[in-house]
């Protein structure tokens, strides 16, 4: 699917090995979107499948948006401004097809409403990046989105944890995952 956009959009680069596990991004994201501190309703979720290996998990805006293609009721669309996946919560039935289509199984159902949660890039001003940068962790930073293979980053927390565990703890630690 080729998408034309109005202005050059951003991408949130992620350096998992720098993530402190502070989960301030979950607080910021849920507060912005839900008006509450609500980790399970955050569009970014920090998985900790092994202590010390924290993986902020959220949409990468794949070049071909398989989730959007997979939605049977066309509840998902792509923002021309930011390239983010937008959810029409009126039409979303919470069927979960987009989760299956996503190579990283990123989307998740809202804990109270039957509606899918996907990062909307906060309309171009990501709150998660702001708090992560403020703290100097810089696990999340903003880069210009160019013609790169962003979809490579759409992976499950298990896969990412396996790689990071080998990198930080040594190959032996992978058996614990």
């Amino acid at each position: 699917m080729v998408v034309a956009r109005k202005k050059e959009p951003i991408w949130i680069a992620r350096d998992f090995s720098r993530c402190s596990g502070c989960r301030r991004c979950e607080i910021a994201c849920s507060f912005f979107h839900e008006g509450k501190i609500w980790p399970e309703a955050s569009r970014i979720r920090v998985f900790m499948l092994l202590p010390g290996i924290e993986v902020p998990h959220f949409c990468v805006q794949c070049e071909d948006y398989p989730c959007v293609e997979a939605c049977p009721v066309k509840a998902l669309s792509i923002s021309d401004e930011t390239g983010a996946v937008l959810v029409n919560s009126e039409s979303c039935t919470g069927c979960g097809n987009c989760i299956k289509a996503c190579p990283g199984a990123v989307p998740h159902i809202h804990p109270e409403k039957r509606v899918i949660l996907i990062c909307d890039l906060c309309g171009g001003d990501p709150k998660c990046v702001k708090v992560c940068r403020e703290g100097g962790w810089n696990a999340l930073t903003i880069v210009m989105r160019r013609d790169d293979s962003y979809k490579l980053y759409a992976r499950t927390p298990e896969d990412i944890t396996r790689d990071l565990a080998a990198k930080l703890y040594g190959r032996e630690a992978r058996e614990l995952i």
Partner: peptide, 27 residues
């Protein structure tokens, strides 16, 4: 291997993760 590690909501992240990669205390 990690210079800032912390828990929910913490700005300080005072923990640091140490790993021994080789020698008799490896792992």
């Amino acid at each position: 291997v990690k210079s800032y590690w912390g828990d929910f909501g913490c700005p300080t992240t005072c923990l640091k993760i140490s790993v021994i990669r080789d020698g008799k205390f490896k792992g």
